[in-house]
Nucleic acid binder design. Sequence first.
RNA 1: GGCCCUAUCGUCUAGGGGUUAGGACACCUGGUUUUCAUCCAGGCAACCGGGGUUCGAAUCCCCGUAGGGCUACCA
Length: 480
Amino acid sequence: MMRVRFAPSPTGNLHIGTLRTALFNQLFAKAQGATTVLRIEDTDLARSNPAYETSIMAGLAWMGLTPDEGPHHEGGYGPYRQSERMAFYRAAVDRLMASGHAYFCFCSAADLEAERADADAQKKPYVYSGKCRHLSVEIRDAYLAQKRPYTYKFHVPIEGEIMVSDLIRGDIVFESRLIGDFVMMKSDGMPSYNFAVVVDDIAMAITHVIRGEDHISNTPKQITLFHALGATVPAFAHLPMILGPDKSKLSKRHGATNVTEYREQGFLAEAMFNYLSLLGWSSPDDKEIMTPDETFARFSLDRVSKSGAVFDLTKLTWMNGQYIRAMSSSDFYQAVRPFLTEDNRHAMASLTEKQWEDACFSVRDNVETLIQINDYVTVYTMSDPSFQAATAAVTWQATDMTVIAAFAAGWEAQGPMTAEAIDGLIATIVTQTGLGKGKVYKPIRLATSGLGTGPHIAAYLHVFGHDKVLRRLRRTLEAQ
RNA sequence: GGCCCUAUCGUCUAGGGGUUAGGACACCUGGUUUUCAUCCAGGCAACCGGGGUUCGAAUCCCCGUAGGGCUACCA
């Protein structure tokens, strides 16, 4: 059984890059029939915050990436928070100490800094000297008795090379001597990242590690640990980075990086899913707009690209628009309703739910992100005084009042009409007056909405209702 | 500095020893539409450079160059 894991650390809200990694794990899992595991990597006591865990889970759920196993879905491999797995790390440390793979290190931060500066001065690559490895038992016990702070370090063999076989990049070779001994257990008693990851990946029976390219250089360290622990090394797949417009790793200075921010702007989960799946992966056919199921059916690691991909907000926005335009009237209304501002809700308070839905739907094709609904419902929210001010500023053409009068007469005579009937009425006026469509539609639009552009006239007039339209037509005529 | 990764239109990418180097976004033009938007049609635009290998290289190899990542008791 294949098992993949997604391992965020709760030190911030869900980042786009983190989401993408989770997504690709999911794509692989669904394509291959693997189980997905969510593991919370909260070993940094200072930066971790349980509130972020909630936020991360919410972000994942929003995009439909609920893991098979995790803190809230025990699957026999828990617990799923590293802070709750201390017994596993302790046992592994003991084993490695017993087998001679690990040792106490009493070097202080200052000691290590000095070593580093020294290597720098000599223009040599810095590798930890390993001096604590050679401490005599007496000195070691004395330090321990003095309660000197210490870490447990892992002894990396100096000879030979370590090869990382990456499913995306092929074989990558590292020289062992350049790696250097590294910390397994920090002086605060918590495991280091590289150590915890390996212990957990073994215990959780992870078969495929799919993560960002920024972890490539950690991989040889982890492989030596897998060997020392006598475990099978999982398969690795390092995903290309998501970049900002300047081609550096996507970060806050590039703008919105939190999934929450996109959600609040009115990006649809489906669009985000679709867009992100195409960042660093391409469909084997030309299909770009794909449902999750269509993506799962097409996904494979061998179509993942190797180079970093710039996050293109413009294309995401376009894709979001595609999803919006595919929505039904009621779906669109449900989606957009939470995004309407208080002012707009208030201004439209006299409308029924159905009218609201019609109003929103009439501008659906103008909207690319849901929050933009507020920019397009002004035709419905404009107050009568604002309307009067707007029409007062219009320079009317000679034929305009004729058209408006004819329209007002027809409107009053017909009573409440369907949108189709309104279209019919306008068409009749076009024929009867012999004026072009433009010379008919434009004054009617102005005399009823006060605006030069907007949704189709019949659509908004229908939402306005009989009385409001008549009131406005009369007002316009009287003002002349 | 060291180690590692990467390199096709502005962006996301397809392709890959012989192609008019394909698609999408963006941009431009035209059409549809009462307007904006949508939609439709067309257009602009790329194989980082230099050496090899080869009949032939954008494709394979090497060297540069550029960009990126990592170089923590962060993950």
